[in-house]
Each structure stands twice: as C-alpha cells, then as structure tokens.
Nucleic acid binder design. Sequence first.
DNA 1: CTCATTTTTAACCATTCATTAACCATCTAT
DNA 2: ATAGATGGTTAATGAATGGTTAAAAATGAG
Lengths: 229, 229
Amino acid sequence: MTLTPAHILLAEDDPTLGYLLSEYLKLKGFAVTWLQDGSKVLEQVGLLRPDLCILDVMMPTMDGFQVAQLLVDNHPHIPFMFLTAKSMKIDVLKGFQVGAVDYVKKPVDEEELLARIHAILQRKLPATTLINGIPIGEYQFFPARQELSHQGEIKSLTRRESDLLKILCEHRGELVESSDLLLQLWGKDDFFARKSMDVYLHKLRKYLASDPRVEIVNVHGRGFFLQET
Amino acid sequence: MTLTPAHILLAEDDPTLGYLLSEYLKLKGFAVTWLQDGSKVLEQVGLLRPDLCILDVMMPTMDGFQVAQLLVDNHPHIPFMFLTAKSMKIDVLKGFQVGAVDYVKKPVDEEELLARIHAILQRKLPATTLINGIPIGEYQFFPARQELSHQGEIKSLTRRESDLLKILCEHRGELVESSDLLLQLWGKDDFFARKSMDVYLHKLRKYLASDPRVEIVNVHGRGFFLQET
DNA sequence: CTCATTTTTAACCATTCATTAACCATCTAT
DNA sequence: ATAGATGGTTAATGAATGGTTAAAAATGAG
C-alpha cells in the first residue's frame, strides 16, 4: 500500500534470533535494520528515522529499558516494543511504564509479532470515519465522496485535493515528508510535481481558511503537517 | 430464500475449506464467489459489489489484513470479517482497528459462521423492498417491474435505465466508480459504453427532475452517486 | 417481415481539473 | 549580507471528462 515500506529497527544481541527475525520481517515487506547492540540504537535512530523499534530487553552494554528511556526522551514520536523472555513478568509492567506500545514474549511467534507490528503501524483511518467523515476543526471531510463540508456548505474536492488532504489527515499533527507525499500522490519527486503540490496545498489552505485553528504547517526543507490547535 | 440472495465474497486459499464453505453458504441461499488468492479480491470487489467479504487471514500473495486495509481505503461501505487460526488471540485482532465487523476462528463452526453472517447482513435492506418499491424522494421505484412512479403517474423504464438506477439505489449516497458501473452493466469500459451511460444518466436525471431533493451527483473522474438531501 | 421500442453512435458544447508558468516571499547556509 | 533553495500565490492553458440532443442501428414482439 505505502510506496515506501515501513522501516523497522531491530535491536537484538542474539545472532540467531536477530538474523531470523530480520530475515522474516524483510520477507514480509519491511525494511529492517538489525543492530546487535542497544547502545547503537540511539546513534542510528536519528539518521534512519524508523517507523518502529523492536528492542530486546536483555542486551549487553545497554538494555532495552535504557534504550527505551532515551528514545522517549529524544524521539518521543517513534513507537517501540519490547522483546522479552517468557518468564519475566515484571519487565512487562516496567516496559509499559516507560512508554512501550507493546511487548512480545520469546520464543517469538512470528505471526503474532507480525500482527502486533501491523497494529502499531496502523496509521490508516478506520472505515467508519471514511464513511462518516473525518472532523477537521469545524470542517467535516468525506474522502470517499471527495467532499469537504463546513456549516452545511459542501465543497466538492478534486482527486488531488482529496488525496492530499487524506494523507495529511492520516498523519494528523505529524510531519509528512514532501518526498513521501510526492511519491505517494504523483509517483515521482521532481520540480514540476513539487510545484503542482504547492498549488494544491494553497487550495486546501484556502478551503480550510474559515477555521483559524486548522492549519497546514510547513517545515522548511522537510515537509508538511496538518495541525489542529 | 430471498428474492435477490445476498452476495458473499470468500477469500480462502485452502481448496478444501474454500470448497466446503462456499458450497455450504450456497446451500444456505447465498450467492458465493470464492477466490483462492487475496490479491484478486480488490480486482473483483468493485465489479461484484458483494454484500460481505470473508477473508482468511493467512493467504499466499496477500494476507487478509492487507486486503482488509485496501478494502477500507477503496470500498469503506463493504463489510468484512476475518477467518483466523484458532491459535491467534482475540486481543491481537482487536488491536487491529482496520474495521473488521467480526472474526471467526478455524476450524469453522458452520452454524456460528452463519449466525454471524446473518447478523452482519441484517443491516441490509430486506428483499421485500424490491417488491414494495424503493423510495427515492417522492418517487417510488420498482426495479422488478422496471417502473418509476411519481404522484400516481407511472413511468415505465427500459432495462438499461432500470438497471442503472437500481445500482445507484443499492449504493445510495455512496460513490460508485464509473468503471464498476460500466463493467457491471455493459461488461466493458470503453469510450462508447461511457457515452452510452452518459445518455442514460441524462434520462434518469430527467425522470427524477420533479423532486429537487433527489440528485444524481458526479464526482469528476471517479463516478456517480444518488443523493437524497 | 414490419413497426415500435430500445440502445448505440455521433456531433457538439460545457465544465473540470492537473499542470505549467511566472513572479514574489521566505528561509538557510556561507 | 547575500545568493540559492524552498515555499506561496495567482493565472493561463489544454486535455480529459461530462452533458445534451439527434440520428442511426439493433432488437424484438406481433
């Protein structure tokens, strides 16, 4: 679905399990970076910007909890889950206190792991909102019909306008890289596609201008996000 | 047996289970389309317009969850349920807010499956409306008789007019892609079929012109929907 | 076969939309 | 401070799509 596969950073010191897991996840269509040492996670995470970190709780130089704490401090938007031995029950609680989105027990049931990964990466909008509309400030957006309503007034959107707004909604409050938008909507990232997108962003901003609490914000050189204050 | 049997699309790669289930459901009065590959579901679903999709979670080229996500994105009105191995935990599935209406564990208890199917299809309009007529604003449409009545006046419709209006009614307020309409009514999607459909849309709009609250709305480049304000 | 009805094809016009262009504003690195 | 890169605004254009009407072709009942 997404043009750019989700990127998973796996921190696992055990070579056998690490290899197996990373190969399995690659097979399932993810981009996987496997680090054998917890201390390396923080170095890499800023560069790689993974969509998810999977942290083994027990690792030599720095354990999963320590890594998680640093992650929470420095990259609060990156979700992570723990890999933990079956016996450790206390760890689970500790993990959730730190802010883990989920945990998976070893030995790993690959299918279950995959399910939980999907659950976390699920940023898409549920079917009910697609039908009933997505609230954006005092607007209501109906992607299925390409319509944007505001105080009874219905503005019908073009395909591009609707698709662009939908992606921004799916990542509400979260930066979406220009290149990602362009690749998803235009299938290419060149000068003209960028200019075209600028035009559509301008149109969307115009449509959404009635509610000052709604804003499409630019982060110079990176991308855009939809903000509702 | 209902007048028009509910149409179920079954995606199940296992030949034995697939055959058994589809035959069982046919025996119970459903129209069943059985696909052995998840990736085929999206190709077919626009054309077949099933009332329900049953997706096996584990399938070769595209698993049930992937199919479900695409369904939600492209056909948010079509309900679906999952078939899942007995080992998979319920909470895992609940974590998926993909929008599944229900799930059923394998091995399948046919009685239970049937009950759940009926529960979902309950929301559909009963077949009796096809006999008693479908209300469209201040009109009454009798697809079986190909007639459209308005304040005592009865206008008899041609096959094409009636079929087209029927599909629009079955998806009231919901966008129906032009290509789906064309494939379903003309069996092809080419220049002439499109022009022909334009002609029939014009005729239907003319017939429905007396009630301004009824409208056949176009979404540029995508399709049409019947709107009752 | 004949005739009335239905469907398709044709011709033409209207509208919509994505793109491109041109220009200006703002940001960032040097 | 300044130049190059990035972003914002507005307008024009052409191709694609949709709407309308009429005529031709196909269909089917008698």
